[in-house]
Amino acid sequence: MNILKFNSEAKLNEAAARIITSTVQVNPSAVLGLATGGTPIGIYKELVKDYNEGLVSFSRVTTFNLDEYVGLSPDHHQSYSHYMKENLFNHVDIVAERTNIPFGLADQLEEECRQYDERIEAAGRIDIQLLGLGHNGHIGFNEPEDELSSSTHVVNLAEETKQANARFFTETEEVPSQAITMGVGTILKAKMLMLVVKGADKAEIVKRALTGPVTTQCPASLLQTHPNLVVLVDEAAGSLLP
């Protein structure tokens, strides 16, 4: 585990983007695992900047997103498909057919999950999997449970997670209660895991995830078992780390 601490969000975003950019520079056909939410937005802005400056091309890159809400169409303004287009895909030269996001409106959700894992296997191992961290220790939408699914699956979102996501929806909209998410086993197959965490409100769960016992009650703690885990935190999020 390699923990990098930064005294500004800008420096953290730049460092995370440089890791991704350098990976694609070395391997133009890299497979990237992408995340959504507030944490990666600054990183994606840096990647767009690198592309505009001619430092990197995404034309041969393949991407797989961690998750998608069940019940939202890809063009819904709060879908993760829409998020990725707005924050990254529409601003670089990535080929749409090489981008993969679970389909939340699939008639057979279990079949969609199975096929998603098959597409990941066919693409080869994910080179870098970008991850955020939920307040309850979830990664992707793998919520604390007695048992965790290793493969892509449908999950019922914890009330805490729904409340955290409610700020993105208007009062007239109902926050989705289910999502399709990569399983922890799928995540751990990536060659490199890059966990990015920002803010003092995440300090306690960062400490628990990285220094506490490995337990399914804190899904992120399983990242400790990965041989190539890079953690990027700002000073606030990393304030309780030894």
Rank of each mutant, 00 (worst) to 15 (best):
P74R: 12
S22K: 14
T23A: 15
H76Q: 10
V214S: 11
V230S: 09
L47C: 03
K191Q: 09
E235Q: 15
G71D: 10
Y51G: 04
A179K: 11
G42W: 09
Y116G: 08
A179F: 04
K202C: 01
L223Y: 09
A220Y: 10
E112W: 03
A164I: 10
G183T: 12
E204L: 15
V26M: 08
T23V: 14
K49V: 07
S59Y: 05
K49N: 13
I101G: 01
K207D: 00
H91N: 15
P213C: 14
G185H: 06
G38V: 01
H226T: 00
E171H: 08
V56D: 11
Q217V: 00
E160G: 06
L105H: 05
P242E: 02
A158Q: 15
G54C: 12
L72T: 01
N228C: 06
A179D: 11
L157N: 09
R18W: 04
D93C: 03
I180F: 10
T23G: 13
V95E: 08
T23W: 10
M84Y: 02
F169T: 08
N156E: 15
S29M: 04
R167K: 13
T152F: 10
A237S: 02
G71A: 04
Q129T: 03
L130G: 02
I180T: 11
F58I: 09
L34A: 02
H82C: 05
H153F: 13
V70L: 12
I126N: 06
S149T: 12
T170D: 02
A96Q: 12
S8W: 13
E235S: 13
V197T: 12
T152G: 00
V56I: 15
C218Q: 06
S81Q: 11
S73V: 00
A122T: 01
T161N: 02
V155G: 03
A237R: 10
A166N: 11
D234W: 13
A236I: 09
D127W: 01
A158S: 14
K198M: 09
G33M: 04
T36I: 07
L222I: 09
H153V: 05
A164F: 07
V155A: 00
E174V: 05
H77V: 09
V26T: 08
L105W: 07
G124P: 05
N13W: 12
A15D: 11
D117K: 06
Q178T: 06
Q129G: 02
E204P: 14
N52Y: 05
D50L: 09
D50N: 13
K11S: 15
G71F: 11
A190P: 04
D107T: 03
T215I: 02
N65L: 03
V92W: 06
V24F: 07
G137S: 12
I128T: 08
G37K: 02
T36K: 03
V184F: 07
L195K: 01
I41Q: 15
F64Q: 10
G124S: 08
V196Y: 05
V206D: 04
Q178V: 01
L193Y: 05
E112N: 05
P40I: 04
A237I: 04
Q163G: 01
V24Q: 07
I180S: 09
I205D: 07
A209V: 00
P176V: 00
F103Y: 14
G183V: 11
V154I: 07
V48D: 07
Q178P: 02
M192S: 15
I126M: 03
N156K: 15
T152I: 00
